[in-house]
């Protein structure tokens, strides 16, 4: 299986899949499609970890892979979907920029990352290629958080960033100890739950349709 993996550049393909799912969000407007994109992104991440685990036989990587799949690939999307259902009317994500402009800026971000990380980075992990992709995913997640108005888009942006951070950490270290990963996953669940509560509260307080974050500007002292 190892030879087959090397021959077909499987790992590179998987990581490019991660990047593409992140970029694809820019062109999607349905929030349920966003959640699906995140789900696929997490599956690919879990798959990547699985492949690395096959290549370097370390048992805790299998655990990490399963954990990622269970939490990010199943549990979180399920939870997000239930939030979206609660918010009822929220189907479309409002954005400040047009789709094409968002895609162009994402492309520029990726270019900047590739140019600047192209040289002088000493990578201890399995691929410097994956590191570039992970940084690009982090920045795209941040970019999504900036340009979308609704609170649920902010959560998804954060989750993409988190996937990116996880990937970056993984590409540099071959995975952290299981206990750390367990903590990170637990942290993430907590964040999403708290933000879900916040979002419902924002929606109720400002009685807006989309839990619009612009309303929070009034809170400034």
């Amino acid at each position: 299986m190892k030879d087959w993996m090397d021959l077909l550049y499987v790992m590179d393909f998987v990581s490019i899949g991660i990047l593409i799912t992140a970029i694809s969000i820019n062109s999607l407007s349905q929030i349920e499609a966003w959640i699906k994109a995140y789900m696929i992104n997490s599956w690919l991440l879990s798959l990547l970890i699985f492949f690395v685990a096959v290549k370097n036989p370390e048992h805790h990587l299998y655990v990490a892979s399963t954990l990622t799949f269970a939490s990010k690939g199943v549990l979180l999307p399920f939870f997000l979907k239930s939030i979206v259902k609660q918010m009822k009317k929220v189907q479309v994500v409002e954005t400040y920029l047009s789709t094409s402009l968002s895609l162009i800026i994402s492309g520029i971000i990726i270019a900047i990352v590739y140019v600047s990380l192209g040289k002088g980075i000493f990578v201890t992990g399995f691929s410097s290629f994956v590191l570039k992709i992970s940084v690009a995913v982090i920045l795209i997640g941040l970019f999504i958080m900036i340009t979308r108005r609704s609170a649920i888009a902010q959560i998804l942006g954060l989750l993409f960033m988190e996937n990116g951070v996880f990937l970056a950490g993984f590409s540099l270290t071959f995975g952290m100890p299981s206990i750390v990963e367990l903590g990170v996953v637990f942290d993430l669940l907590m964040i999403v739950i708290i933000m879900g509560v916040f979002m419902v509260q924002i929606k109720q307080k400002f009685s807006s349709d989309a839990a619009d974050m612009d309303q929070l500007t009034n809170l400034k002292g």
Partner: peptide, 25 residues
């Protein structure tokens, strides 16, 4: 600088990160 808009605050972070990536590395 403090506009109260969370998007703008995140924008500061993104711009800082990109500038660091471009000129630091």
């Amino acid at each position: 600088l403090q506009s109260g808009s969370i998007h703008l605050y995140l924008g500061y972070i993104l711009i800082t990160l990109l500038l660091l990536l471009l000129f630091w590395f």
